[in-house]
Write a protein that binds this DNA or RNA. Structure first.
Length: 469
RNA sequence: GGGCGUGUAGCCAAGCGGUCUAAGGCGUGGGCCUGCAAAGCCUAUAUUCGCGGGUUCGAAUCCCGCCGCGCCCUCCA
């Protein structure tokens, strides 16, 4: 039974779900105004890891990740991020959203993330949002002033349970001017109206309206997963106000617990500091790939740290990732070869497999799991596995790949390479080292490394396909 | 300014009161192996856990102060 740290209860607790064996998860996805950065991906990958682990454990997983294609208003600038970006590019907000969504899905595939079962777009759920607002107005949890609808924090006594914020403290520490139309300074907008807004809808709430920031997630989660979610994830920055407000508006509307388990990942840092667009280090997966790294290496680099611990992204760290994966690949190659033999031997997979699962089920402890894996490799190498043992190990490595998604790239057979490798082998057999080294150099220039092993020559392509420096 | 976190070797990253004479990976040095390599294996790489006090028989682990960094209080994974 997996256990996770729950931001809501502030303790590690075993996974409990509404329906036995079924997990309904909601993940805060991207706002599609700019291509998601590797920092965003750290968060999305947490969702993927969770799903893979749970499915591996036999759970039936239903996964929702939203795509926010409505720009949230900016109090100070009047515009919103979508509109802002659109203006800068001379496009409509819808065009921007469309293009960035395509990039997002592209990167999702490249980073080997399983597609969530639902990827709802906020703009497709306007009716659900309006319905939710009306429910809250009717129940007295919301009020309308000058065509703006606010959620009344005073009407929901639980406000603050997730973040630990106290309403009084928020007001005291507030650094932003409070909208004077609110009854209470901590009230938040459910529905806004502004004729100048680019993305706006005519609904029963009036003309020229658009949703407040937190509303979409509640509407989509409730529509797709029911009134009580099992798991909700997102970056640490979303704890407050976003998730706090989601809880408030959802629970006020349904009268039921909104979500059992809240998981938040710490931010990704770059070179030991903040990552930011203005700092020029808000890399996208595309940037990393352009530097010569594979998406697999990036996936590993983003997944290798514990999600509740800050993770530092460095180019040196990418080299490190490459080294780690290369070690894993070489071992896998050895095992594949061994597995084809009939040699007698025995596998000792069980204790290692158990420890590996235990690590991941313990609040997704990837670092511990990786250590177990490496210990396993060392142990297996020192053991006479034989063909049968190798097949067991291989099967476990397949499972590791199922959960972590860091297995080797599928390589299409390259006859030309095989031809050169055997030509070189013939040269070696007759002691023509000059010719052998010449061929090796040719292959090397194509990014192919040849290794002479007791079982014959073995070649592999440079995982990165080029030097990053 | 207020709140919540975090700081471990050249780098990434575990450990969070005794089993730490501090995992694991990358990198680096030495050795074995090899036609030469590569891979693999062995070995060396933190007498020490941001700094200063304190609690304790005992602290990287708890407390206090300071410094750095991160998150929130404002859009943000």
């Amino acid at each position: 039974m997996p256990r996770f740290w729950n931001t809501l209860s502030k303790e590690t607790q075993p996974l409990e779900t509404t329906e036995p064996g079924v997990v309904r998860m909601y993940h805060c996805g991207p706002t599609v105004y700019q291509r998601p950065t590797i920092g965003n991906w750290r968060s999305f990958l947490l969702a993927d890891l969770l799903r893979r682990l749970l499915e591996w454990g036999g759970w039936d997983v239903v996964q929702v990740m939203n795509i926010t294609d409505v720009g949230h208003f900016r109090e100070n600038e009047g515009g919103d991020k979508m509109a802002h970006e659109a203006d800068a590019l001379g496009e409509s907000p819808w065009e921007v959203a469309e293009r960035v969504t395509t990039w997002f899905l592209e990167d999702m595939d490249r980073l080997r993330m399983k597609r969530p079962h639902h990827l709802p777009r906020a703009t497709d759920y306007i009716p659900s949002m309006v319905e939710l607002v009306e429910r809250l107005l009717k129940s007295g949890h919301a009020y309308e002033v000058e065509e703006q609808v606010y959620f009344s924090v005073s009407a929901f006594k639980e406000y603050g349970v997730l973040s630990g914020n106290k309403v009084e403290d928020l007001i005291a520490g507030a650094r932003v001017e409070v909208d004077e139309r609110k009854r209470h300074p901590a009230d938040f907008a459910l529905w806004k109206t502004d004729p100048h807004h680019v993305m706006k809808w005519e609904t029963t709430l009036g003309k020229d309206g658009f949703p407040g920031w937190h509303l979409e997630c509640s509407a989509m989660a409730l529509s797709l997963l029911g009134e009580t979610l099992d798991i909700h994830t997102g970056g640490e920055d979303l704890v407050f106000p976003h998730h706090e407000c989601e809880i408030a508006q959802s629970e006020a509307a349904t009268g039921k617990l909104y979500c059992r388990h809240w998981l938040h990942n710490r931010f990704l840092m770059v070179d030991g500091g903040k990552m930011g667009k203005s700092l020029g280090n808000a890399y996208t997966p595309e940037d990393v790939i352009r530097k010569g790294y594979t998406s697999r290496e990036l996936r590993f680099a983003l997944l290798r740290g514990h999600y509740r611990q800050p993770l530092n992204f460095t180019w040196e760290g990418m080299e490190d990732a490459r080294g780690f994966l290369s070690r894993l690949d070489r071992f896998q190659e050895e095992i594949v070869r061994l597995a084809e033999t009939e040699d007698k031997g025995r596998g000792i997979v069980f204790p290692i497999r158990t420890a590996f699962i235990e690590a991941l089920e313990n609040d997704l402890d990837v670092p511990a799991a990786l250590t177990v894996l490496m210990d396993g490799i060392r142990t297996w190498r020192a053991t006479s596995l034989g063909g049968e043992g190798a097949r067991e190990v291989l099967s476990f490595l397949g499972e590791v790949d199922d959960v972590l998604g860091i297995g080797p790239e599928l390589q299409e057979e390259d006859r030309e390479i095989d031809r050169l490798v055997s030509k070189r082998e013939r040269a070696r057999k007759r002691g023509d080292w000059t010719e052998a080294d010449r061929i090796r150099e040719i292959l090397k220039s194509q990014g192919i490394e040849v290794e002479d092993t007791p079982h014959g020559p073995q070649w592999r392509s440079d995982s990165g396909g080029g030097s990053p420096r």
